Computed example of a mutant assay.
Amino acid sequence: MTASNLTPNCLWPLGAELGEGPLWHAAEQRLYFVDLVGNALHALDADGGRHSWQLPTYMCWLLPRKDGDGFMAGLRDGIVRLWLAPELRIEYLHRPLEQEGVRLNDAKVDAHGRIWAGSMNAGNVHSPDGKLYRLDPDGSLHTVLTQYHICNGPTFSLDGSTMYHNDSLLGRTYAYAVQTDGSLGTPRLWRQFGEGEGSPDGMTVDSEDCVWIAQWGGSRVCRYSPQGELLATIAMPVEQPSSVAFGGPDYKTLYITSAWQDYDADKHARDPLAGALFSVQVDVPGVPAHQFG
């Protein structure tokens, strides 16, 4: 897979201030994603149809349920069940955030149907107040990691034995061994990102167990081997690519969200597609998203 054939296509120049959390919903043939600080959920159908819902507060992520009865979602202040039809309905399950300025940030479901959701101090990202929570299928919530600045990811190896997880402020991706009961082994530094590479943000794994990472501030999305070797680079026409997800009928479409967070007018003028949704056609397909439950 070479960089020359990885050309991003702008699908929806909607200008999300903080586009995040792309999720391909196979049953609906639809991509969902959020504008986190815009309090909005958006969806793009395979046939090009567009949909949007306004939320009462930040929406950080949306994840599928195995029973198909609505979704799981992370709002600014808690984990909820959410239904979009026949009308928007929200039911809070957990409100674990007690500190002023701390909000949920990113999440993913593992092969055992558990949600792993991180938090961060949005008011002071230099304060290590972020935590990683695990929501088990029985509804119980557990704090599994602390002392993170900006929790991003996670994603999991194909066999579920490894979790990759970012502290974006430090430019670090860690790898953890995952036990069947959800406990984690000692972290190892999987990759340290350097100057010019951007910060590791949202990520996913393809069918060859390689890791794709959106590199915020680096104008690129990269593919890495399970050992952390750089394999391919997508040069993005925006500075802040934020997250990635595979979709489409063959899972060979990589969807990429982006943002224009903290831009002034001059910077926005220099980065006019910031906040758009992009896609890239790849040779190696991804895998379907796991479902909670």
Rank of each mutant, 00 (worst) to 15 (best):
Y164P: 08
E100Q: 08
L11N: 08
G78T: 14
L55N: 04
L230K: 12
L82K: 13
R50V: 03
E229T: 15
Q227N: 06
S52Y: 02
D45I: 02
F71Q: 09
G139K: 05
M163D: 11
W61V: 15
L184A: 08
H142S: 13
H268R: 15
D271W: 03
L189Q: 01
M72T: 15
Y133E: 04
T162A: 07
P200M: 07
I234T: 15
L254S: 09
T204D: 07
R134H: 01
L141F: 05
A235Y: 04
T180N: 05
F156I: 15
N124G: 10
G123P: 04
H51P: 00
C10G: 07
F156H: 14
D201N: 04
G218F: 06
V144W: 02
A26P: 06
F71I: 06
S168W: 11
F156R: 12
Y92E: 12
M120N: 08
G185K: 08
G248V: 10
R81L: 04
L6A: 11
V284P: 07
L170G: 15
R134N: 10
D167G: 07
M1V: 15
Y263W: 09
W61D: 15
G21M: 11
G78Y: 05
V221D: 12
H268G: 12
S242D: 04
G101S: 04
A73H: 08
H51W: 14
R103K: 14
S219H: 03
G228F: 00
F278A: 06
P200H: 12
G118A: 09
L170M: 07
V280F: 03
